[in-house]
Design a binder for these strands. Structure first.
Lengths: 193, 193
DNA sequence: AATTAATGAATGATTGTTCATTCATATTCC
DNA sequence: GGAATATGAATGAACAATCATTCATTAATT
């Protein structure tokens, strides 16, 4: 055998890509700037990804999958939808503190017309959101009028929008208290009533 | 005097820019592709805009200003916040039908970390949203717990997100009925209660 | 020595921007 | 009224810089 692949390099490529896409957009994140930031040769990433598009798409899928999995496990472990939402929103805020670039990355690309989430993931999201609505109605926590889209809007989109609005400091403050985090969950839950 | 400036050309540059930014993102909308689509020489846009960045920023400001002005005039003419929201959401849906690329353009850039709305516009938005909350609380239409950010979320962000989700066909359908439009307004109003 | 991880120079295409040039027309002059 | 002139609208070739991608080469490991 020859030497072992340095996983640190691949990881640094991933991190650099996320940072630079957030900073400069997809078009502004060039391969050379990614390689420079990762401390790696220019063409090295082509050993693992066939193109820049695939690299970024792959990263988006992975990050979105983490959120989907979290929602899925919460739906399996919590009886009440309010509990699911409190926990999920807690997770998103945790992500915003621990790895802010990642949530910005998701935020930027999920609004880009060139980066749709995969069909499979979309179907998965839909089925989970359907379950939120179904369980919520059964529990009396969600109005019978609420659609899957509305639930998606309040469970996923609204918290992500709130976090990114704060991170941009749109209304002044660029951080938040535990109290405000609780309030985001409370607001989302209330909107579905 | 020489010949008169052909406003049609400038307009075509603006339209082509909006279309191509939506289609390919800011980085993917090249000057040459914009000029080609507008049927204009490559360097011509530099007579009116000092750079590509300024061209796009300028367009974003103009489009955002239209929405701000609409909200402002509604706040001056309507006593009830529910009426303001019904009307504003109606306007956004109208925009989505008449000039879909424009609302996609706003949607894409308002989530880009390189394109913040101007400070002046941000302050303006904040003051209008504050008025929504203040009037709403006075009328008993809005809960005392509701913050400016939450109102912004439901009055501006949520409808734009809904429209773009539909335009992407995220949950299947890529259009909407009048009934669904009413429901968006109803949902937004209810969320602030 | 054999293997393969990793490099980075080289590629041709494309980028945003400039500016000398061309061309259309409003004004001036006879 | 019609030709000459002046003005500036509009062009598009040319620029250096940078782009994504390739691959012959080098270096590290067993």
């Amino acid at each position: 055998m020859a030497r072992i692949i340095d996983e640190g390099k691949i990881q640094r490529i991933r991190e650099a890509t996320i940072e630079l896409v957030v900073l400069n957009g997809y078009g502004g994140a060039s391969i050379s700037s990614i390689a420079r930031r990762a401390g790696v040769a220019e063409g090295y990433l082509y050993r693992f990804y066939s193109s820049k598009q695939e690299l970024v798409t792959q990263l988006l899928y992975t990050k979105v999958a983490q959120i989907i999995e979290k929602l899925e496990s919460l739906l399996n472990s919590c009886a009440r939808i309010s509990e699911v939402m409190v926990q999920l929103i807690g997770e998103l805020f945790k992500m915003a503190v621990d790895t802010p670039e990642e949530i910005k990355f998701i935020h930027v690309l999920m609004h880009d017309y060139n980066f749709q989430v995969s069909d499979e993931q979309r179907r998965h999201i839909k089925s989970l959101v359907d379950k939120v609505v179904k369980t919520g109605i059964e529990n009396g926590e969600v109005s019978k009028l609420v659609s899957a889209e509305e639930a998606y809007g309040m469970v996923i989109i609204y918290p992500i929008e709130f976090i990114n609005l704060r991170m941009k400091g749109f209304f002044g403050s660029a951080q938040w208290t535990d109290e405000e985090q609780k309030r985001v969950a409370e607001f989302s839950i209330n909107a579905l009533k």
